[in-house]
Amino acid sequence: NKSRCTICSKLAEIRHEVSVNNVTHKLCSNHCFNKYRLAN
């Protein structure tokens, strides 16, 4: 079950899903999750 990561755009296994204003951001790693948190 692979999806495209919101941060790095890599097609990968999604580890984190963050839902903001009915938009789901898919994040493939802790690294991308941290980058997402810093950016938002």
Rank of each mutant, 00 (worst) to 15 (best):
A39T: 12
H31C: 07
S19D: 05
T24R: 09
E13F: 07
T24A: 11
T24N: 03
C32E: 04
N22K: 07
V20A: 14
F33R: 08
N34G: 11
H25Q: 12
N34K: 08
R4C: 03
C5E: 00
A12K: 06
L11A: 07
C5M: 00
H25C: 07
H31W: 09
V18W: 06
I7V: 13
S29W: 01
K2N: 09
N22Y: 05
T6Q: 09
N1G: 13
T24L: 09
A39Q: 12
N30T: 14
C8S: 00
H16F: 01
N30W: 02
T6D: 04
T24M: 09
L11H: 11
E13R: 05
I14C: 10
L27C: 02
C32K: 01
I7S: 07
I7T: 08
S29H: 01
K10I: 04
L11G: 06
V18G: 04
R37H: 09
K35R: 14
H25R: 07
S19Q: 12
H31E: 15
C32S: 01
Y36C: 13
R37W: 04
S9W: 06
H31K: 15
V23M: 06
K2I: 10
C5D: 00
K35W: 05
R37T: 14
K2L: 08
N21T: 09
I14E: 05
T6S: 13
H31Y: 02
A12M: 14
S19R: 12
V23I: 06
R37C: 09
N21V: 05
R37S: 13
H16C: 03
N34D: 10
K26W: 08
N22P: 02
N21Y: 13
C5L: 00
V23E: 13
S9D: 08
R4T: 12
I7F: 01
N34H: 05
K26G: 11
S3D: 04
N30Q: 14
A39K: 15
N21Q: 11
S3A: 13
S9P: 01
Y36G: 07
K10F: 01
K35A: 14
N30P: 11
I14M: 11
E13M: 06
F33D: 05
K26T: 13
F33C: 04
E13K: 05
L38A: 15
R15T: 10
K10H: 06
S19T: 13
K26F: 11
C8N: 01
R4F: 04
Y36T: 13
H16S: 04
I14V: 13
T6R: 05
C32G: 02
K35L: 06
L38I: 12
K35G: 06
K35T: 10
C8Y: 00
N1T: 15
L11C: 12
L38V: 15
E17T: 12
Y36H: 01
S9G: 13
C8P: 00
H25P: 03
I7N: 04
N34F: 11
S3E: 15
E13D: 11
Y36E: 07
S9I: 07
H25G: 11
N34P: 04
S29F: 01
N34V: 11
N40T: 06
C8L: 00
E17L: 05
L11T: 10
C5N: 03
T24V: 13
Y36D: 04
C28T: 00
K2Q: 05
H16I: 11
T6P: 02
N22V: 03
R4G: 07
H25N: 05
K26H: 15
L38Q: 15
N1V: 10
E13I: 05
A39W: 07
L27F: 11
L11N: 10
R15S: 10
L11I: 07
K26R: 14
C28W: 00
S19M: 10
N34L: 09
K2D: 04
V20R: 09
H25S: 12
S3T: 06
L38R: 14
N1S: 08
C8F: 00
R37P: 04
H25E: 12
N22T: 09
A12E: 05
T24G: 07
H16N: 14
V23H: 09
I14A: 14
F33E: 08
S29Y: 08
N1R: 07
E13V: 09
L11R: 10
N30E: 15
L38Y: 03
T24I: 09
S19E: 14
T6V: 07
S19C: 09
C5V: 00
H25M: 08
N21S: 12
S3N: 06
S3H: 12
T24W: 08
A12L: 05
S9V: 04
I7K: 04
R4W: 06
L38M: 06
N22Q: 15
C8V: 00
S29P: 02
A12F: 03
V18P: 03
C8E: 01
C32T: 01
C32V: 01
C8T: 00
V23K: 15
N40L: 05
L27M: 13
N30V: 11
R15V: 14
L27S: 02
I14G: 08
S9C: 15
A39G: 13
N1D: 15
C28L: 00
S9H: 10
S9A: 12
I7W: 12
E13T: 11
N1C: 05
A12P: 00
